[in-house]
């Protein structure tokens, strides 16, 4: 069942287009990573999904309704981001209590255990917390609300390494215990890739890739071997990056080899080395490039 659906969604601020005819749909219960470089519209997409802002054009459906001004979407979703703020008249303890009054699936005991684990003080105020602590506190609310659609926008901003690891582990454990649709955005793919089932990769204002994280990884492969042997295989292929170490070359190409071709490569002493999802992401978003070596080769040749 589809929970979130974007059809030709465009969002503009004045003359600046942030999302351009974006299309995708998120299935129920899938933990999806919204990945993209800084400023590609990840946050905009998330704010539209929970109804905080409105699409300029196109059709947005969450639980089959337009999220903007929908009380149903608001009650069944939560967006944890930098802009999540609470009255400075409320203590952290008050805020947890208020969250419990609002969200029907609120897990009070979990919230309290996380609150204690991360060493928060009941009488502190959200505005007085450090950046990392504020992120952690907001994340606790996001986890404990158990909303059918739970969205985290760069949730670990400012957190130290230990807190980041703890948060992602908590997220995974809670997701396993209470399966629900979760979106997590990050520009550090390597930090979240193992957690994700699907990746929605945003680039140039649109969805460049949407599918299983492992599929993204397997889109590319590194060929390592003698340069003269490799060159015969890659003559008509798009080279994403290449690196030359002595007589050996390391060439990143699209993984479109048939099994026959693969065994042929093996016999020629050329290794096919899988790339990390992060490398694939970089390859996909930087497009065709000769790598840093070509920058230098280019200047001497011209």
């Amino acid at each position: 069942m589809t929970v979130i659906e974007f059809n030709d969604v465009t969002k503009t601020y004045g003359r600046r287009t942030v999302l351009d005819k974006m299309n995708f749909s998120i299935r129920q219960g899938v933990l999806t990573g919204i990945i993209g470089r800084n400023g590609v519209g990840k946050s905009t997409l998330m704010k539209i999904a929970v109804g905080h802002i409105q699409a300029t054009s196109g059709d947005v459906r969450v639980f089959s309704v337009n999220p903007f001004n929908s009380l149903k979407v608001s009650a069944n979703s939560i967006l944890v981001d930098d802009a999540m703020s609470f009255s400075d008249k409320l203590t952290l303890k008050d805020i947890l209590q208020e969250a419990g009054r609002f969200y029907p699936n609120w897990d009070g005991p979990l919230a309290q255990r996380l609150f204690d684990y991360f060493g928060f003080h009941s009488n502190a105020r959200q505005v007085d917390l450090s950046k990392g602590k504020k992120s952690t506190f907001n994340a606790i609310i996001g986890l404990a609300s158990h909303c059918p659609v739970t969205i985290f926008d760069e949730p670990t901003t400012g957190m130290d390494t230990v807190a980041r690891k703890d948060f992602y582990r908590a997220l995974l454990k809670d997701y396993i215990a209470h399966p629900r649709t979760i979106l997590v955005s990050s520009h550090h793919l390597e930090e979240v890739e193992d957690l994700l089932e699907d990746i929605l990769l945003i680039h140039n204002k649109t969805a460049l890739f949407h599918g299983p994280a492992t599929d993204l990884q397997e889109m590319f492969v590194n060929l390592i071997g003698k340069e003269e042997k490799i060159s015969t295989f890659i003559a008509d292929r798009e080279i994403i990056s290449s690196q030359i170490n002595g007589s050996y070359s390391e060439i990143l190409v699209k993984n479109t080899f048939t099994s026959d071709e693969k065994s042929h490569l093996h016999t020629q002493g050329i290794q096919l080395v899988p790339v990390s999802a992060d490398d694939a992401y970089v390859a996909l978003t930087t497009g065709k490039k000769g790598g840093i070596d070509h920058v230098f080769n280019g200047t001497t040749a011209d």
């Binding site: 009380l71 009650a75 409320l90 609002f102 059918p148």
Partner: peptide, 21 residues
């Protein structure tokens, strides 16, 4: 999936009490 069907009056009541705090 269990979805909440909120009533406007109920949410307004919760928000009013929240605002008093």
């Amino acid at each position: 999936m269990y979805l909440t069907e909120p009533r406007l009056t109920n949410i307004v009541k919760k928000q009013f009490l929240h605002k008093l705090n």
